[in-house]
Design a protein around this nucleic acid. Structure first.
Length: 197
DNA sequence: AGGCCGATCCTCT
DNA sequence: GAGGATCGGCCTA
């Protein structure tokens, strides 16, 4: 699911207008049901009050706080009872760009890569919090937070190790659009790209 | 009840 | 490249 989510739109309807960005980087985290152990996954040790959304029906947002200051967002990508998720790591801003920049404390004409490149930046730009957005159905047309396909075509995807974790750091579960300026991190993506066709 | 640490970001060198 | 901010969640006693 993680590579297939690249190129899709993440859309947030807010009182201040529509905020949206194209997903250019995502990471997969494997649930305890999966044959490959993934101790870095929040669901790895089973359900808790924090991660219960991951064990619910798919297509719902799992938003959690990290380091006391930031939020990160996943979409649940497994059937009910299983708990795999995809972390959205970076967006290319598409709509409501000045407001997204303002949410980040940046000037309205800030360069795109400064706005939502990184999972904490992404949530801050879109104005997402656990209190307001955890558990929302991203596939419900009535939801203020949605995943959408606008027909954008992705022909090639890069694969690397995941960023910012210690456990299971060697699993090749980070995916990004090759050469896109809004992808986070400094690791080179060259040589790890595959054609989707 | 206490302690440790994280799917981060920003600043400074 | 290194270090601090900052706090909720999960483990241990």
């Amino acid at each position: 699911m993680a590579p297939l989510l690249l190129g899709k739109l993440l859309v947030h309807r807010t009182p201040a207008g529509i905020l949206a960005g194209r997903i250019v980087e995502a990471e997969a985290y494997l649930g305890p049901h999966h044959p490959t152990p993934d101790p870095a996954a929040h669901s790895h040790r089973g359900p808790t009050p924090r991660n219960e959304v991951l064990f619910g029906p798919p297509g719902h947002a799992y938003v959690y706080s990290i380091y006391g200051r930031y939020f990160c967002m996943n979409v649940n990508c497994e059937p009910e009872g299983m708990a795999g998720g995809v972390l959205f790591r970076a967006l290319d801003p598409v709509a409501g760009i000045p407001q997204m920049a303002r949410n980040r404390g940046l000037s309205a004409n800030a360069p795109h890569p400064a706005i939502a490149s990184g999972p904490g930046r992404l949530c801050e730009a879109l104005g997402l919090t656990r209190a307001r957005h955890n558990g929302l159905d991203l596939l419900d047309p009535a939801s203020p937070l949605q995943l959408r396909d606008d027909g954008f075509s992705v022909s090639e995807v890069c694969v690397t190790e995941r960023i910012g974790i210690r456990q299971a750091a060697d699993l090749p579960l980070r995916f990004a659009l090759p050469g896109h300026g809004c992808v986070s991190g400094r690791k080179s993506l060259t040589g790890n790209c595959v054609s989707l066709v």
